[in-house]
């Protein structure tokens, strides 16, 4: 089966789930999962295809969330315009920060991106006058679409999932073009990439920027959906969670990552009785996955070409 055919089937299934299920708790959980899918799909382009790690992606989610919220609440700008500006600004920030950072390789790149994520987190946490600090920030208005206010779980579900699928479709398109081949070359055989005309550094900066775009967009939509943001949602833990989802999902495998992300973001909500132990469970799960299925869920979806 082709990727896009399977994606369409998944889309139909997701819409059907939205129609059948009326429980707002479940719908909310799935919408939150969709937001995570957006971040992880972007990270997958960077890590799964181009082979470049980022340990600071939660920071970019925070950028999108805080910039859009501040623009909307403090300056009274229309939410959609605020989201648009926030995503643009975050992506620009990603490009500027990515330019020097992506000259680094492997461990050094991991350290540098970790630092960027932490800096964003610290700024948001400590600039109390602007961001509210650890107390969080709220007051964002509901999003509305063509006069149709997204004021309940069902409505947001039917907004966020089509957006998510569109973003997945775009990333599949990119990967199935000459750029996809170039990124796969960069990931494993950089010299071959050079030899066949790939400006390796600029390509890395570009895909980094795209993944920051995905992350900040998810952050901005999250902020307006929940109406409240605080630094604790955008820490190193979340950055690592995103990486775990890409790795267990099977680096570069869209659908493995799709399901892994949904499962891993829904599980903690279901297993509330072990909430306190979730980091331990999560860690054990990762160790187990790496030992038993080092290629993640790749094989499970190998029939999708």
């Amino acid at each position: 089966m082709k990727k896009k055919t399977f994606l369409l089937l998944l889309f139909i299934l997701t819409m059907a789930v939205g129609i059948v299920i009326k429980n707002p708790f479940i719908l909310n959980m799935l919408s939150m999962a969709a937001l995570t899918v957006i971040v992880v799909t972007g990270l997958n382009l960077l890590l799964g295809f181009a082979g470049q790690i980022s340990l600071g992606h939660a920071g970019f989610v925070a950028l999108g969330a805080y910039i859009s919220s501040l623009l909307s609440v403090k300056l009274g700008i229309n939410p959609w315009v605020a989201i648009f500006v926030a995503v643009l600004a975050s992506s620009l920030f990603g490009a500027i920060i990515g330019y020097p950072t992506l000259k680094l390789k492997s461990h050094y790149l991991a350290m540098a991106t970790l630092a960027i994520g932490e800096i964003i987190h610290i700024v948001v946490n400590n600039y109390v006058e602007l961001t509210g600090g650890p107390q969080g920030f709220s007051g964002m208005p509901m999003l509305s679409l063509f006069g149709f206010v997204l004021d309940n779980e069902t409505k947001f579900y039917f907004f966020i999932w089509p957006v998510t699928f569109l973003l997945i479709l775009l990333s599949i398109n990119l990967v199935e073009s000459r750029f996809g081949r170039a990124y796969k070359a960069i990931k494993s055989k950089e010299n071959a990439a050079y030899a066949f005309g790939v400006n390796v550094h600029m390509y890395k900066v570009f895909i980094f920027t795209v993944s920051v775009f995905y992350a900040s967009l998810a952050g901005a939509l999250y902020a307006f959906y929940i109406g409240f943001i605080s630094p604790s949602s955008f820490g190193l833990t979340q950055s690592i969670d995103y990486i775990v989802m890409v790795v267990i999902g099977g680096m570069g495998n869209f659908f493995g990552i799709f399901f892994t992300t949904i499962i891993l973001s829904v599980l903690p909500n279901i297993l509330t009785s072990i909430e306190d132990y979730w980091p331990i469970v999560n860690g054990l799960l990762l160790i187990f996955a790496m030992m038993v299925i080092p290629n993640g869920m790749k094989r499970l979806f190998s029939w999708i070409k």
Binding site: R181, K184, A185, S188, K189, N191, A192, A195, G252
Partner: peptide, 9 residues
């Protein structure tokens, strides 16, 4: 290339 530089995936 001397050491084959084909992309495995």
């Amino acid at each position: 290339f001397q050491n084959i530089q084909l992309i495995d995936e």
